[in-house]
Design a protein around this nucleic acid. Structure first.
Lengths: 180, 180
DNA sequence: TGGGTCATGTAACCTGTTACATGATTAG
DNA sequence: CTAATCATGTAACAGGTTACATGACCCA
């Protein structure tokens, strides 16, 4: 149940509306978690039922009224509980559409597998560049004994993960093209 | 929509019941796609409504009657269409619970992040060993101009992906422990 | 003045997870 | 004899996706 906890985490920074959270999420967590806006609204609703957040209506005139959410003590406790919980198996969600397609590519001409890999390679390069740009944008972040820069480890993972994928694609393309 | 297509792919090998498919899936595709049994039953149902498969009841006496599914021409066409389709963005589903937790680990003691990484490292090693064992079990598969061994590329990806993750964990642990 | 983005959400549907139900056969 | 596994599924719920609705403001 990572999405709810991601939202809790963001709400410890500041109170936010669904819209705000959606943007915040996009800026900070979207490299390793995709969530769309409507999903965030629904989750907030459920989190309020769970007592993890409270909301209050804020009247606005130039825009539609909004509902601003804040984390409760209960919510904070839940966030900490989740962070301390050990559940290694649940951390790896294996679901890879690329490999699914590749696995069955014997059914079609080899060219399709090659295009598949090449397109995906392009996608990886673009995604990698985007993360790098984002990281540069934030600039140097202090990593001290008091505060390890966890976000840095996460972006590092993401970038290197793309590197790994690109390297694997290149080798696989060589093998495929070598068979011609 | 990869699960339906995975099942279509398996059904081109042979006709199968939901139970058979569930085991087949486990043996062949589970390294890159997790699916549970009940999900497979439901998907088969929908695929029959779509005309991609047909089923027939098979009476059994020692066990409950079963429903055996076979792929139709329509289903085969759909499988090929999916294999040829270009959709690079949809191939990367970014949803990483490990990074979500790590990202917010500043909220708790550093020790929890260390345990998190160590537990996950163990998980990766076990998963890696399991795939290797499976690959050895199948033995050498011919890779010829006529038939590239796509399954081999997929397992190769999976193994190297675990290697990458383990390497990143080790470096991250060093950084974390260096801060003490 | 017409299209994009800001800003708020709702509704319907699809996909994935968990728990349960039933009864035979097999291993310790 | 008892628990595990084989073998078949169904039901309810949780999480994710797509499409739609409303209206102001901003830029070309």
């Amino acid at each position: 149940m990572s999405l709810k906890h991601g939202l809790l985490g963001l709400l410890t920074i500041r109170q936010s509306s669904g819209y705000d959270l959606s943007k915040l999420f996009q800026e900070s967590l979207s490299f390793f978690w995709v969530a769309n806006q409507s999903q965030i609204y629904r989750e907030l609703d459920k989190m309020e039922q769970l007592g993890w957040v409270v909301s209050s209506k804020v009247e606005q005139d130039a825009r539609p009224n909004k509902r601003v959410y804040g984390i409760t003590q209960e919510g904070d406790k839940e966030l900490i509980r989740w962070l301390k919980e050990e559940n290694a198996e649940d951390l790896a969600v294996v679901r890879n559409p690329l490999l699914m397609k590749l696995f069955f590519s014997g059914k079609v001409d080899r060219e399709y597998a090659i295009v598949l890999l090449k397109n995906y390679r392009k996608f990886c390069q673009d995604a990698r560049a985007e993360i790098r740009a984002e990281v540069e944008g934030i600039g140097q972040v202090e990593e001290t004994a008091a505060k390890p820069a966890y976000w840095l480890y996460a972006t590092d993972y993401s970038i290197r993960n793309y590197d790994f994928q690109i390297a694997w694609i290149d080798e696989t393309l060589r093998r495929l093209e070598g068979l011609k």
